[in-house]
Amino acid sequence: MDGWLLSLTVAVGLVVAAPFIGGILSGIDRKLTARMQNRVGPPIIQPFYDLLKLWGKESFVASRFQALLAFSFMVFSVVAFTLLVLAQDLLLIVFVISLADVCLVLGSYCGRSPYSYLGGRRELLQMLAYEPILILAVVNIYAATGSFMVEGVFKLGFPLVILLPGVFLALLIALPIEARKSPFDISASHHAHQEIVRGVFTEFSGFSLALIEFGHWFKLIFYLALLALFWVPLLWLGAVLAFIFYFIIMIVDNIFPRLTWTFMLKAVWLAGFTLAVSNLIVLALLGVGLAWA
């Protein structure tokens, strides 16, 4: 009972802390990006200022549903992260994350502007790119641990990454999509100008945008947590490495232009997909996973 209570406390703590970590992470991101570009950059807590400012702005919507869907995006991002810290079913978590993304896409389509429309389309393509990888990653984890539950990872006793290096790499390849970073920053353009303005975010403003930003932090942390999961029981190492990998993603962001969606699909599918599948095949061939043991 005590253990149950403890884990619940930890979970609640993590859910509460996640947006702060996410915000600060994005602040650090901006600062470091600025430094890489030989600029000074904003203060680390600038994202919070931005959020507060967005929060307080007058609310404009291009469609009534937009706000609702932005809210849904935020809620399901939070739910996905919560499920993760509650050590729930990973497959389910992947589905919930995709639900959040679908909400964002629908919200962008609601915007009636060609740019959010094109952005929504591209966001769907991004989903097409990374969803199989996520599902395959989960299946891989199952193959390694014999369970779809996050608990299974903890029960394994040694870092997952030993069994699933390919999957880990595949997730790293897909990470820029979720972090909205170059070269896969095709749907929303987090920093630079792009042909479809701000893509999915074009029509979101004020409060709705704040919600989306908030949800985005959760998603970011969720992904980093997913990466960290591969290092359990050395979770602290995993956390550190996750941040390091985020830093690498930042560097990649700065040394790459935004590429086209065709390239994204090709790259992610060819590299990420192949890695994930071959990892699964290797596991099956070697029979090292717990699932078929």
Binding site: S59, R64, G111, R112, S113, Y115, F207, S208
Partner: peptide, 13 residues
């Protein structure tokens, strides 16, 4: 959103 309202505007064109 009932409370916060939200003015309906034309999209960015």
């Amino acid at each position: 959103f009932r409370a916060k309202g939200g003015k309906l505007v034309s999209p960015y064109m």
